[in-house]
Simulated assay, not measured.
Amino acid sequence: MHVGLLRTVGATTAVYGLAVTAWPGLLAKPSGLAEADGRTASATRTSLRPLAWRDAACGLALVLAPAGPALRTAAGLRIAADFGDAALLGVTLPGRARRRAAVAVSLGWGALSVAGVLWPASGRRDRGARP
């Protein structure tokens, strides 16, 4: 397991999740969920905030979990969330290009977490590992 990679994925998704929780338009606009004038409707903001909060929580778990089973579990949650996003957003977002982009981004982040879990142990402690 590559602890440093998992912690980096975690920190990045936590920050992104917190940002989208505060400003849902960061996700709504590129996803095609904003209004024609670029504003994000109240119902859309309400729907996106829990999704963003989930990303923040999963990311924080990756940052804080001790190396070993707890970190693998946190990574599993992150992977399930990313692959679930790919499956659901890939068939529900408006516009083929936006669906493809959402799938690519979601699969990319999920793949980074998979790589972090499957990375062969190096015999020396990862810099990001905690005892």
Rank of each mutant, 00 (worst) to 15 (best):
residue 16 Y to S: 10
residue 78 R to E: 14
residue 81 A to L: 11
residue 36 A to T: 12
residue 4 G to I: 00
residue 123 G to I: 10
residue 88 L to M: 13
residue 20 V to N: 05
residue 28 A to L: 08
residue 99 R to I: 06
residue 110 G to K: 08
residue 86 A to H: 08
residue 91 V to K: 13
residue 2 H to N: 14
residue 36 A to F: 03
residue 85 D to E: 11
residue 79 I to S: 05
residue 61 A to I: 00
residue 7 R to I: 03
residue 122 S to V: 00
residue 48 L to T: 01
residue 37 D to Q: 08
residue 94 P to R: 13
residue 66 P to Q: 02
residue 88 L to P: 01
residue 54 R to Y: 01
residue 83 F to L: 14
residue 112 L to Q: 07
residue 106 S to C: 11
residue 62 L to K: 03
residue 21 T to R: 04
residue 40 T to R: 03
residue 84 G to K: 07
residue 40 T to M: 02
residue 43 A to H: 11
residue 12 T to R: 12
residue 19 A to R: 06
residue 42 S to V: 13
residue 25 G to M: 08
residue 94 P to K: 04
residue 51 L to I: 12
residue 27 L to I: 05
residue 11 A to G: 15
residue 44 T to R: 06
residue 52 A to Q: 04
residue 106 S to Y: 08
residue 56 A to I: 00
residue 91 V to S: 09
residue 57 A to R: 02
residue 123 G to T: 10
residue 110 G to M: 12
residue 11 A to I: 02
residue 91 V to A: 14
residue 33 L to N: 05
residue 113 S to G: 09
residue 28 A to G: 08
residue 60 L to C: 10
residue 31 S to A: 15
residue 95 G to Y: 09
residue 66 P to K: 15
residue 124 R to I: 07
residue 43 A to F: 13
residue 46 T to Q: 13
residue 68 G to H: 05
residue 49 R to G: 01
residue 111 A to S: 15
residue 68 G to C: 00
residue 51 L to R: 09
residue 114 V to I: 15
residue 60 L to T: 15
residue 119 W to G: 06
residue 79 I to Q: 07
residue 16 Y to M: 08
residue 46 T to N: 03
residue 49 R to C: 05
residue 92 T to L: 15
residue 110 G to W: 06
residue 105 V to I: 15
residue 10 G to L: 12
residue 124 R to Y: 04
residue 95 G to C: 10
residue 85 D to I: 06
residue 12 T to M: 14
residue 1 M to Y: 04
residue 100 R to Y: 08
residue 119 W to M: 10
residue 105 V to L: 15
residue 52 A to E: 04
residue 109 W to G: 05
residue 45 R to D: 09
residue 48 L to G: 10
residue 1 M to W: 06
residue 13 T to D: 08
residue 28 A to H: 05
residue 110 G to R: 10
residue 1 M to V: 09
residue 14 A to D: 10
residue 68 G to F: 02
residue 6 L to S: 01
residue 6 L to V: 06
residue 37 D to V: 01
residue 28 A to F: 06
residue 72 R to D: 13
residue 46 T to K: 14
residue 111 A to N: 04
residue 23 W to I: 13
residue 1 M to D: 02
residue 116 G to V: 07
residue 123 G to M: 03
residue 71 L to A: 06
residue 85 D to K: 11
residue 93 L to Y: 11
residue 55 D to I: 00
residue 56 A to V: 03
residue 2 H to P: 00
